[in-house]
């Protein structure tokens, strides 16, 4: 029974989880809880500062910024989830295969990962979109592919450590089939570190998506995204700084709290802080 919270172990997660949950709830229920239609123009209230009616003000077309920030968070979350999903799944698979088979397979897979790792995410996204057209889907794909080598290296390193453990050799000597060893004995040891990496990668994905949108390579207007909102706000930074500020703060809080969540998960999964 937990009488008290073990702060050394759960502290960071306890503090960051509310922010993370807030972001997810705000994006999931944006259409229901947003005070205005994020696309509705209202020429009577263009570039108005924060007020009781519009908590975060309005933009150059009179759209409610709070509603648009909430709507935009959906893109950020989806891009983050899908990109991290692609990266974590692909990377874990490649890492496990490389570690288990070793030798030539390992060398080929990991050298390939090194090559992918050399591409700046932005550049890969630009190349993809130059060929396939600009869309959020391509942004997700580009960011996801960029994440694969990181997850692959992490997984391979952890798996190799586990594979040298006597308990794993004991399993091999019992004749446990390879697939079962990888899935039952190695994978559970890999999941913890991958989860930690995923939280951090998620924040990085959100940041990257915003950067792409800022450059006009991600979500296309009128679809709001934090990146293109900041870009739009740039033109009005003197009269209406809140246009850029609001999505900027949202972006900062999201990235920061997911980074801390990653650190927090590390503490939770650290057996040394247990009990």
């Amino acid at each position: 029974m937990l009488r008290r919270i073990n702060w050394r172990r759960y502290g960071l997660v306890v503090v960051t989880l509310p922010v993370v949950i807030l972001v997810f709830v705000a994006s999931a229920f944006a259409p229901v809880i947003a005070p205005y239609d994020p696309y509705a123009l209202d020429v009577l209230v263009m570039l108005e500062g924060p007020s009781e009616k519009h908590l975060l003000g309005t933009d150059e077309l009179g759209r409610d910024i709070l509603s648009r920030v909430m709507q935009a968070s959906r893109i950020s979350i989806v891009v983050g989830l899908v990109a991290v999903g692609i990266g974590a799944f692909g990377g874990t698979l490649i890492g496990l295969l490389a570690a288990w088979f070793g030798g030539k397979i390992d060398a080929v897979l990991m050298r390939f990962m090194d090559i992918v790792f050399c591409f700046p995410a932005i550049l890969l996204a630009v190349i993809l979109m130059a060929n396939l057209g600009t869309s959020v889907l391509n942004a997700m794909l580009a960011i996801g592919i960029i994440f694969i080598p990181g997850f692959a290296r992490l997984t391979r390193a952890v798996a190799q450590t586990v594979q040298r453990q006597p308990f794993l050799e004991a399993a091999i000597c019992l004749g446990v089939p390879g697939r079962r060893i990888v899935l039952r004995e190695i994978l559970p040891n890999v999941i913890g570190p991958v989860l930690v990496e995923a939280a951090v990668a998620f924040s990085y994905a959100v940041l990257l998506e915003s950067a792409l949108s800022f450059l006009g390579l991600g979500a296309q207007p009128p679809e709001p995204s934090w990146g293109n909102m900041i870009n739009t706000g740039r033109g009005f930074i003197d009269q209406a700084p809140w246009i850029s500020l609001a999505p900027g703060v949202a972006l900062f809080l999201t990235v920061f709290s997911f980074n801390l969540l990653g650190d927090g998960l590390r503490d939770v999964l650290d057996p040394k802080l247990r009990g």
Binding site: P166, E169, A170, I172, C173, L174, G175
Partner: peptide, 9 residues
């Protein structure tokens, strides 16, 4: 595998 078993250090 079933006829030969290790005990490690």
């Amino acid at each position: 595998r079933q006829r030969v078993q290790p005990v490690f250090q």
